[in-house]
């Protein structure tokens, strides 16, 4: 019994890692079970999961603008520098 508990118990650090892994690669059956058990007893990780999902959606919409801004200012900087050479 103790061994079973040990197998199922996850730390919050590991649980949040599995939450991320799940989004990108999926989980094995054992990992799914361990995470599910953890989430039934841990409100903080449950909250983390919802917020991580929200960030996932937000980043999906936001990334394009972000990359464009960074790269446009870099291009401008380089062009200015080359003009002065």
């Amino acid at each position: 019994m103790k061994r079973l508990v040990n197998i199922l118990m996850l730390s919050c650090q590991k649980a949040t890692e599995l939450i991320e892994k799940e989004q990108y690669f999926g989980l094995s059956t054992l990992e799914k079970l361990r995470l599910r058990v953890h989430l039934t007893i841990c409100d903080f990780c449950t909250r983390y999961k919802q917020q991580s999902r929200f960030l996932h959606d937000v980043l999906g919409h936001h990334s394009h603008d972000h990359a464009t801004n960074v790269n446009e200012s870099l291009k401008e900087k380089i062009i200015n520098q080359i003009e002065n050479l």
Binding site: T16, E17, E20, K21, Q23, Y24, F25, S52, L55
Partner: peptide
């Protein structure tokens, strides 16, 4: 490595 990076970035 990929999901560990994602984990850190998200945290």
């Amino acid at each position: 490595n990929f999901w560990q990076l994602m984990h850190r970035a998200k945290l």
